[in-house]
Design a binder for these strands. Structure first.
Lengths: 248, 248
DNA sequence: ATAAAGTATGACGTAACGGGAGAGTCAACA
DNA sequence: TGTTGACTCTCCCGTTACGTCATACTTTAT
């Protein structure tokens, strides 16, 4: 039942070193036999590996993959369905590339003219909608950006920021038993949205996604609920309504 | 006509830094204005960039790409046609991956059973036929490895090696009118396989592929048939059988 | 029982850029 | 005509995802 490393490597088509690496960074850590120290992979480990390779195929860095699959809100089935969509999208791009190559061949045979833009159609691998969707769903670049910005700030600036945050949290906490759709709640959440956009840049979708994280990820929930029990949930709802109302 | 770096980056969907990098390693070096030192890209540069990105998409390291496109024997049109084939192959693999995902979804819903091998179908990105073809066409790693190892050897060692080769060739030549599946032929070819793995490292698939080359590439055929007419063909058949028999 | 094959843990190497610093260049607008 | 903001240049260090030894122990096959 439990497989040794080479066998797993062969089945999955990766190197032994890769599996060592995944263990090192704690992305995929199998059990080890007490006596020999050998890594033993279960079938569940194999499933996880499959997931990892899917995400890798889609261009996610290992760090992000780790976050995603170890997140408490990670839903395997949902992920698979998104995978399918993204793969189909990828195939569409591939088709476009094939068309591009065919045009290039014809062009080289003098049959047609080809513009420079056409030359690179299908290559745009980073800016597509489903990957965007995935980034929003599972925590994304904007968060990294904020963190980076925070890193560059002076202590004083951080204090200002933290004061601002606290005041908004407190304001929201006071409203947390009213309706998320109320004018007051919406006004307060707008403050929050504007505030966030000082340190990062959030689309409305990202904002809504962030709200979802507040309840999905217990690290957030715990932090936020310090200002009042149920605040995370209230903010999540309020943010969702705000986002939906403000879409053109 | 001549474009500045940002414009090129935008058209091709790569970063400015990437173009800087390609200039550094002399993969793609545009002209520079004498006065400002700015890089100026011509339309020909753009074409080359397109080729580079194609090869990159197929997983070639930049070093190899440089060799390929700067080789005097490099034929743009031929390369494009192979590109198309490889892209189509890639789409096939992608289709397989999509099937795999769909199966996994059904599996997770308890509708079907799924074997471990099935789990990873479509992922095997390094061992496919067209990429193999490309590697053979434009020089491949195993050959480089052998060359490197050969380079490190003393004259004496080389002589030993050459003696070993000759003795195996002679042995095989003597058997070339018997059946490739016979015990003797298989034993002799195993010697050959082991021998090759002293200087390189050949998987069974690579071994089989090598055998195919013996008949496909006349430089090999000529060389081998010096030991007896038809030896190349005989070895090819014997190697294929050996490879197939030894896959567990 | 002894060799061959597999595995483990470091530690260093590599490829393909990313990203910032510091300084010069260009284009447009006031 | 000056200046401002977007581009560009050349270092140069950092990062990701492993590759590649070296060295030592364990398992498997003969």
């Amino acid at each position: 039942m439990a497989k040794k490393i080479k066998e797993v490597a062969n089945i999955a088509g990766v190197s032994v070193r890769t599996l060592h690496h995944y263990d090192e960074i704690e992305l995929l850590s199998p059990k080890k036999t007490a006596d020999s120290g050998y890594r033993l992979y279960t079938d569940e480990n194999l499933e996880t590996l499959q997931q990892i390779l899917f995400f890798k195929e889609l261009g996610f860095p290992l760090k992000k993959i780790k976050e995603i699959i170890s997140s408490p809100s990670f839903d395997r089935r949902e992920a698979l369905k998104l995978h399918r969509k993204m793969l189909i999208e990828k195939r569409r791009r591939l088709d476009q590339m094939i068309t591009t190559v065919e045009k290039t061949i014809q062009h080289s045979e003098g049959e047609i003219y080809m513009s420079n833009k056409e030359r690179f159609e299908g290559f745009d691998f980073s800016h597509n909608s489903y990957e965007q969707e995935a980034r929003e769903r599972w925590g994304d670049k904007t968060v990294d950006e904020s963190n980076a910005k925070m890193g560059n700030m002076s202590k004083e600036e951080k204090n200002d920021l933290s004061a601002g945050m606290n005041s908004i949290y407190t304001k929201l906490a006071a409203l947390r038993h009213t309706s998320p759709a109320s004018e007051k709640a919406q006004a307060a959440i707008k403050e929050w949205y504007d505030f966030l956009n000082k340190i990062g840049s959030y689309s409305l979708d990202a904002f809504k996604g962030l709200g979802q994280m507040y309840v999905d990820d217990e690290r957030f929930t715990k932090n936020i609920d310090q200002f009042g029990e149920g605040l995370a949930k209230f903010m999540c709802d309020t943010m969702a309504i705000y986002a939906d109302n403000n879409k053109k």
